[in-house]
Simulated assay, not measured.
Amino acid sequence: MSHVDINKFIHNAESVSRDPDGHMLELPPWDEREAARLAQEEGIALTADHWNVVHFLREHYRRNGRAPSGRVLSAALEEAFNDYGGRRWLYSLFPRGPVVQGSRIAGLPLPPYSADASFGSVE
């Protein structure tokens, strides 16, 4: 049995598996520079509000694992950010959807059933 150096594996950007939309399938090392790069690819200039959502998503994943569906994660986001304006506010930050764009920027895999058009833009 060969021994794999996990540090070399997880730090090799080419080893990160992504779905066709660019979402990470595994959880490689993530930092705010990576998030800023991914946000730039999405056409988003991260503000303190964006960071609050991104950090919420990462903490939610850390505590609960992958959400059972996009709707469950969407509901958790809406509840957590209700005082800021809920769903409408979240979509103002992430026009392609707080679940889809937020998860990508947070370096998290999409929950199942997130490809539903209802998780897209409000435009």
Results as ranks from 00 to 15, higher is better:
Ser2Ala: 14
His3Trp: 11
Val4Gln: 10
Asp5Lys: 15
Lys8Ala: 15
Phe9Pro: 10
Phe9Trp: 14
Ile10Lys: 09
Asn12Arg: 11
Glu14Trp: 09
Val16Gln: 06
Ser17Gln: 14
Arg18Tyr: 14
Asp19Gly: 10
Pro20Asn: 11
Asp21Ile: 12
Gly22His: 13
Met24Lys: 08
Leu25Phe: 09
Glu26Cys: 09
Trp30Glu: 02
Trp30Ile: 03
Asp31Ser: 08
Asp31Asn: 15
Glu32Leu: 08
Glu32Ser: 10
Arg37Ile: 12
Leu38Thr: 13
Leu38Glu: 05
Leu38Val: 15
Leu38Gly: 02
Leu38Asn: 02
Ala39Trp: 02
Gln40Ala: 14
Gln40Gly: 06
Gln40Arg: 13
Glu42Gly: 05
Ile44Leu: 15
Ile44Ala: 06
Ile44Phe: 07
Ala45Ile: 09
Ala48Gln: 14
Asp49Arg: 12
Asp49Lys: 13
Asp49His: 12
His50Gly: 04
Trp51Thr: 03
Trp51Pro: 02
Val53Leu: 04
Val53Lys: 03
Val53Arg: 00
Val54Tyr: 01
His55Glu: 14
Phe56Arg: 05
Leu57Val: 05
Leu57Trp: 00
Leu57Ile: 05
His60Val: 06
Tyr61Gln: 08
Arg62Ile: 11
Arg63Thr: 13
Arg63Gly: 06
Arg63Ile: 12
Asn64Met: 08
Asn64Leu: 08
Pro68Lys: 11
Pro68His: 10
Pro68Gly: 10
Arg71Thr: 11
Arg71Ile: 10
Val72Trp: 03
Leu73Cys: 03
Leu73Tyr: 03
Ser74Ala: 14
Glu79Leu: 06
Ala80Phe: 00
Phe81Leu: 06
Phe81Glu: 03
Phe81Thr: 04
Asp83Ala: 15
Asp83Met: 09
Asp83Lys: 15
Gly86Glu: 04
Gly86Gln: 05
Gly86Lys: 04
Arg87Pro: 06
Arg87Gly: 09
Arg88Pro: 06
Leu90Trp: 00
Leu90Gly: 03
Tyr91Lys: 14
Leu93Asn: 04
Leu93Trp: 03
Pro95Val: 06
Arg96Met: 12
Gly97Cys: 03
Gly97Asp: 02
Gly102Leu: 01
Gly102His: 00
Ser103Lys: 01
Ser103His: 03
Ala106Glu: 03
Gly107Asn: 03
Leu108His: 03
Pro109Ile: 01
Pro109Asp: 02
Pro109Gly: 05
Leu110Asp: 01
Leu110Arg: 01
Pro111Cys: 03
Pro111Gly: 00
Pro111Ser: 02
Tyr113Glu: 12
Ser114Trp: 01
Asp116Thr: 05
Asp116Lys: 10
Ser118Gly: 06
Phe119Asp: 01
Val122His: 14
Val122Asp: 11
